[in-house]
Amino acid sequence: MPRFMGFVRMEENLDTNPPQALFEAMDAYIGERAANGVFVDGGGLFGTEDAVNYVVRKGEVSRVDGPYAEAKEVVGGWSLLQYDTVEDAIADQKLFAELHAKHWPEITVISTLRQISEAPEEPTD
């Protein structure tokens, strides 16, 4: 069964919190998918003010702490999902995005779905 990682990206430091209607719609959406085995795990993320990044550049490792003035969008949430087919995953991701469009239309959200590689990629020569 193919597995996927879902991400929700949005502008950081929004002047508004998600509306209660979106929380309620998401609870129902996630509850249904958890009950049928599609939703494996997921959650929201705190802002980047407490984030820690390690940057590897030219063989050197350096630590960079938030906040990040240059960041325009951040990953605000994530999910681990599994579907019978790629087509099912894509269709369901659209429903997820539509929940945000309906319940929080004043913001821009990018809903991303990426399939998880189940085996190491073969090295290219």
Rank of each mutant, 00 (worst) to 15 (best):
Q20M: 10
Y29D: 07
K102T: 15
T124D: 02
G42H: 01
L99Y: 03
D125V: 07
Y54L: 14
H100W: 11
G77V: 00
M1K: 03
P123K: 07
K72F: 09
A97I: 05
K72L: 13
L14G: 06
E121A: 15
Q82W: 04
W104C: 09
S111K: 06
H103I: 00
A89M: 03
F4A: 06
V8P: 07
I90P: 00
V55I: 12
E12P: 12
K72R: 15
I107S: 14
V56E: 01
E49M: 04
F4Q: 05
T85E: 10
A119L: 11
R114C: 12
V55T: 12
V61G: 00
V61L: 15
V61R: 12
N17K: 04
F4S: 02
I110K: 14
G77E: 08
V40N: 09
V38G: 01
V75C: 12
D92V: 05
E32P: 09
V86F: 01
A35T: 08
P67Q: 01
P123S: 05
E118L: 11
A101E: 01
V109F: 08
S117N: 10
Y83E: 04
W104Q: 12
Y29R: 02
E70K: 14
G31A: 03
D65T: 12
D15I: 00
H100E: 01
Q20T: 12
F4H: 06
E32A: 12
M26G: 02
R9S: 07
S117V: 11
A21K: 11
E60W: 00
D88E: 13
G76Q: 03
N13I: 06
E70V: 11
E11Q: 14
T16D: 07
F96K: 01
H103C: 03
L81Y: 05
A35R: 10
E70A: 15
G47N: 13
E24S: 11
V61E: 09
T48G: 13
H100F: 14
F96I: 04
P105N: 07
E106W: 02
D27L: 10
D41Q: 11
L99S: 04
T108Q: 12
E87I: 08
L80F: 09
F23R: 11
P105Q: 07
I30H: 09
E98S: 03
F39P: 05
E87Q: 15
